[in-house]
Design a protein around this nucleic acid. Sequence first.
DNA 1: ATCGCACATGTAAACGTTTCCACGCGGTTC
DNA 2: GAACCGCGTGGAAACGTTTACATGTGCGAT
Lengths: 342, 342
Amino acid sequence: MVGIKDVAAASGLSVATVSRALNGHASVSEAARARVLAAVDALGYRPNAVARSLRTDRTGTIGLVISDVLNPYFTELARAVEEEARALGFSVIIGNADERADLEDHHVRNLLERRIDGLLVSPADGHSPSTLDAAAGPTPVVFVDRWIAGADAPVVRADGRDAVRDLVDHLHALDRRRIAVITGPAATTTGRERLDAFRSALARHGLPLPEEYVGRGDFQAESGRLATERFLDLPEPPDVVFATDNLMALGALDAISARGLRVPDDIGLAAFDDIPWFSHTDPPITTIAQPTAELGRVAVRALAALIEGEPATSTVLPAHLVVRRSCGEPVAPTQSGGAARE
Amino acid sequence: MVGIKDVAAASGLSVATVSRALNGHASVSEAARARVLAAVDALGYRPNAVARSLRTDRTGTIGLVISDVLNPYFTELARAVEEEARALGFSVIIGNADERADLEDHHVRNLLERRIDGLLVSPADGHSPSTLDAAAGPTPVVFVDRWIAGADAPVVRADGRDAVRDLVDHLHALDRRRIAVITGPAATTTGRERLDAFRSALARHGLPLPEEYVGRGDFQAESGRLATERFLDLPEPPDVVFATDNLMALGALDAISARGLRVPDDIGLAAFDDIPWFSHTDPPITTIAQPTAELGRVAVRALAALIEGEPATSTVLPAHLVVRRSCGEPVAPTQSGGAARE
DNA sequence: ATCGCACATGTAAACGTTTCCACGCGGTTC
DNA sequence: GAACCGCGTGGAAACGTTTACATGTGCGAT
């Protein structure tokens, strides 16, 4: 591999001057710069980022550890993160934790060894030692979407409480009274928050939340299917199921279709996280939309600030209700066929 | 930051012995190993992968450059790649080219500077100089999904020709005769292959493919919507639209719904790439499924072989037709007790 | 006894950069 | 005319590892 000293030799200059020329440093003559560039071209020199990182103690890389790349919510988040990071001159290494604490641990440790400049993480539960270490250690860390209570790192997330209240209001207005919920893991902050918010929202209307109307899910499709089947087996099944993420909603839809039931006539369905396909399911699904891409961008900016040594603050962005048709017709009576546009 | 020489000092051994102990090298006494481990623990030493990489000329990282992370097909591919890579001890840096040649170029160059051990790329078109350089250079490269004709690198991809023929047979059997297609970019191998396969399949049945039945798309949803609108504006619109990827199919569905038309009664829709949501759209969509995850795994294994200095071969896996209901009811009126549909 | 070998360990040289410090030189400022 | 400054440049020391080579020891074979 051709290195900087080959360039130096070819251009008749020292490695120091070549390095300065390449990094756009001040005080290197035009003539020298031109000779360096010519030599670089002639030799096909590519700088070695590894060596540079070793010397400068900066890799120009940030790590992103998320729970599930197949979840469109996290996919969108990852994309936004990569975009903003690139704009700021960083590359992104993604670690997929698959909702498993051990994998999260593996990825965090691995990323720290690679000396990433900063870490963005959506912790599965609070039990990954590496994640805790990271938050305490010198590498800047920002939590995104989910966080760990005790840890000392900024959090960038959406608050769904108001939107959940709006959702319950909406359901109540449609005369739904037996509302069940499929929660995420209690270990996750989002899982707990959504259930809490839902509980209080029901309480405002004096609606009960019997234990058998609480399905324990894990943010994956299969758990949504299972929970819904259990609901449908109940002597008095709910008239709406609220799945607290998009994959579990998909699973719920599966279970409902499998029984030959129809949404929303036989049972209503509401979800958390808006994704493009929710407009195209049968019927289009009422859901709570998060400002996903914005979350990603803000998180990256907060992390970049930390990396620059500036202080960074936590951010909470609002989520909002998107009414479609899966909980009953909002206004006009049923029309058949095509999907409604919003 | 605590380095290997701190560990050496703390354990009263030399850096060489510490390094050997840490890397599980032979011929280091149990006593020494124990002392090293104790010191590591006490100091909280974490190896510096950057320094190691500089010395060993290996980063334990592979690059993956794909066209669009938001496309579920590529998401699934990326996930499979990451999984297999992790199993083989590699981390993955993902670059999202967003179907743009300049971004692809940026990512490939960036990854090469980072001295990744190998590169997996799904080239947008053949015009990225960096990609061409990479394929010619010393870093192992494997093309996945798409490839570049002249380049000297193994290709791992699916062959959709047979499946496309099956699809056209299926459409023909359902008495569809005016079949339109939305293609991907002609610059991509997949774009061209699917159109070619479709053309020959039509020819087998003596069906024409008029120029106005060929919509030029770019594998993104919006182009599918546009192309479909143009089809619907035709004096004699097609009775089936075949979208050659899942996002364009989504766009087509949008356009069709927007006009209040119904699938499959008013117009049929077929797609390429199977994704979970295709079972849940209204109606479920007939499509050609690729062995996506398998493609990712095979590609990683081929790349790993190359990295080890072993030869690697190209692989072609078959795609296959998945019949659902978006092109008309299959032979039997209703099959498996799915949802009762209108 | 000598040799040679296996073993455990240490010394020091790389890996490819960036950057601190020093140097020479022409031009100002006293 | 001496002292100083700014500019362009070069020499060489880091950065934290791995590893080739050297060293020293104990021991079985000659």
